[in-house]
């Protein structure tokens, strides 16, 4: 048990084929997530982050390699894993109240009916939505809807929470609030979170480790341990010189991958001289 990682990605690759067209999206992606860690996967839009997350969650089968979750190969979504999707308006059911939305995945075996109201109330409290159980999702703001979706994930009591750009669709101020909410929550509950984003600041600010995804097909460019103080603060943390360095490092890696041709001319200029 001891040496085992919670999540272990081994040589993960994914190729989409539509008709005759084959698109290689991921190749040889390898990294691990340990219990209690907050890991951010960062990469530019279209890099294949959502694809990667779906492979990890068992929503799509990888073309090569595998994901081990608690030592077992993932083929279908495991019971102790929850996903928070980018577009809350499409993952909450508009015909159910928030409480019913949260209750829906709570199966009888793990969550006896009489315990559920308590679990739901606690999850709502954890995301700052006390007393909002009777409200329909569309009666709330975007940020509140995403918090409701997170509450559903929490109530499900997973061992790992996968989040796919969960704050991409909310305004900047709400986004900052939600970052601190998720961060505080994961610290308080000792949750394991795998957080996917294209936002470098968000990744460095929130993570214990940042996995930079780049290239086509995408692979892990670097796995960076974020050696910032554990307690994060939107102003103080972001003013630390170390924060700037980390940010620059991630930015450089992503830029380099975006312009492979330029990089080649930078690193090996001699080649061009002698055709």
């Amino acid at each position: 048990m001891g040496a085992e990682h919670l999540l272990d990605l081994q040589d993960l690759g994914k190729t989409y084929s539509t008709g005759a067209v084959r698109a290689r999206i991921l190749e040889g992606v390898e990294f691990t997530v340990d219990r209690g860690e907050f890991v951010c996967v960062v990469g530019p839009s279209g890099a294949g982050k959502t694809t990667l997350l779906k492979c990890i969650a068992g929503l799509t089968a990888p073309t090569t390699g595998r994901t081990l979750f608690e030592g077992e190969k993932v083929t279908e979504p495991p019971a102790k894993l929850a996903v928070i999707f980018q577009d809350y308006s499409r993952s909450l059911l508009p015909w159910l109240t928030v409480a019913k939305n949260i209750e829906l995945p709570l199966q009888k075996a793990r969550f006896p009916a009489r315990e559920r109201p308590g679990i739901i109330a606690e999850a709502l409290a954890n995301v700052g939505l006390e007393g909002k159980g009777g409200v329909y999702p569309w009666e709330m703001s975007g940020g509140m809807q995403q918090r409701a979706a997170i509450a559903r994930g929490l109530a499900y009591q997973p061992d790992v929470l996968l989040m796919d750009e969960p704050f991409a669709a909310v305004d900047a101020q709400t986004r900052i609030d939600l970052e601190d909410l998720v961060l505080g929550m994961s610290r308080r509950l000792g949750m394991t979170v795998l957080f996917v984003t294209h936002d470098i600041d968000e990744a460095v600010y929130m993570a214990d480790r940042v996995v930079v995804l780049s290239g086509t097909p995408a692979a892990v460019a670097r796995d960076i341990t974020v050696d910032l103080p554990g307690e994060r603060d939107q102003v103080q943390t972001k003013n630390l010189p170390r924060y700037g360095e980390l940010r620059a490092e991630v930015f450089g890696l992503i830029q380099a991958a975006k312009r492979p041709a330029m990089q080649r001319t930078e690193t090996v200029p001699a080649r061009r001289m002698v055709p």
Partner: peptide, 13 residues
């Protein structure tokens, strides 16, 4: 909706 389908699968309804 596709994302709804994925939500449903990930929560094993």
């Amino acid at each position: 909706d596709t994302q709804l389908r994925e939500m449903v699968r990930s929560y094993r309804l």
